[in-house]
């Protein structure tokens, strides 16, 4: 026998003695009201202070969609995406090398991580830029030959500097992810006759992704902001463009606020993307996927609508 507990059923069919739900006066949380008032008060005070400062706020919307700013946003995004791509691919490769039974590859990976994590990324960027001191030419045999200085464009310097540095950090994140997958998975896969590489690609990495994605989201957002360093190697991205406008128009600080606003917008967009990516890799890990923000909003609204009805009954 199954007992039907459907509340929306009309009342004319005698319900099979549904238990009466408890109606009690909820605990009052006065602390919450007090802290909310204090927080809002502080926020208002800070906003007021900034609005009264000697800042020409009008300059921010004036230049918000300026061609140079939009170009800078585009370059920042491009650099972030490409550097992260290099970082993720390199990181997975390094993590696999680090965990491999082959002592040569694992030592190489260890050394790479040791070096690239141990030196500041700004220094690495400048070294890439000035490597022409060591290698005068770049010579790939019959395919390509040029002076180092004309080969190393600002974009390539920025990509190599940021991407190779990121790979060292991603390697550790990926290693943690790979180690988090139960050994039984590898065994089951091997027992079915799957090779090491197939096991890794089809079984282990997809499961490791669940552990890898959240810290990688962190890295993406970090990378987005770290791209502001590459102005040191003559690459024009968001912050550099904003500073240039600031110097010519005399609204230097205003342009910094503008850049900050753009960075905030971009990180928000990435965070939303991260949420959905996490949701994708959570499939199979829990019985039901977590709701999307939109679904949660709908559920909350529905709850809101039903509550008064329950009270009037």
């Amino acid at each position: 026998m199954t007992v039907d507990v459907n509340k929306t059923e009309p009342a004319d069919t005698p319900p099979p003695a549904a238990p009466e739900s408890i109606k009690a006066i909820p605990v009052r949380h006065y602390g919450r009201y007090v802290s909310a008032v204090i927080a809002i008060g502080l926020l208002v005070a800070i906003v007021y202070a900034f609005s009264q400062g000697k800042i020409n706020w009008g300059a921010v919307p004036d230049y918000f969609f300026d061609d140079r700013i939009l170009h800078g946003v585009g370059q920042t995004l491009l650099l972030t995406v490409l550097s992260m791509a290099i970082g993720i691919v390199g990181g997975i490769l390094l993590a696999v090398m680090r965990l491999s039974k082959n002592p040569v590859t694992s030592s190489i990976a260890w050394f790479y991580i040791w070096f690239f994590r141990g030196t500041p990324v700004l220094v690495q960027l400048m070294v890439w830029f000035n490597l022409g001191l060591v290698f005068e030419y770049i010579n790939l045999g019959p395919i390509y030959k040029d002076y180092w200085s004309s080969f190393m464009t600002p974009l390539l310097t920025a990509l190599l500097g940021l991407g190779l540095n990121e790979a060292a950090y991603m390697a550790e994140i990926c290693r943690a992810g790979l180690l988090a997958v139960d050994e039984g998975q590898t065994e089951a896969s091997h027992a079915l006759g799957m090779s090491h590489s197939k096991t890794l690609r089809r079984i282990v990495i997809p499961q490791a992704m669940r552990v890898i994605v959240p810290p990688t989201g962190n890295e993406v957002i970090n990378m987005l902001k770290t791209t502001s360093l590459v102005s040191a190697v003559q690459f024009y991205e968001l912050l550099r463009e904003a500073q240039d406008i600031g110097q010519t128009s005399g609204a230097a600080v205003e342009m910094l606020f503008l850049a900050a606003a753009w960075y905030l917008i971009l990180t928000t967009v990435f965070s939303i993307g991260q949420y959905y990516l996490e949701r994708y890799y959570a499939r199979g890990a829990s019985r039901a996927l977590p709701p999307t923000p939109f679904q949660r909003l709908k559920a909350n609204l529905a709850l809101f609508r039903r509550t008064p009805k329950a009270v009037t009954r």
């Binding site: 039984g184 089951a188 499961q207």
Partner: peptide
Amino acid sequence: IGMVFQRFNLFPH
């Protein structure tokens, strides 16, 4: 050779 494990070891994804 097929193998069945105590802890099933199905691929959860």
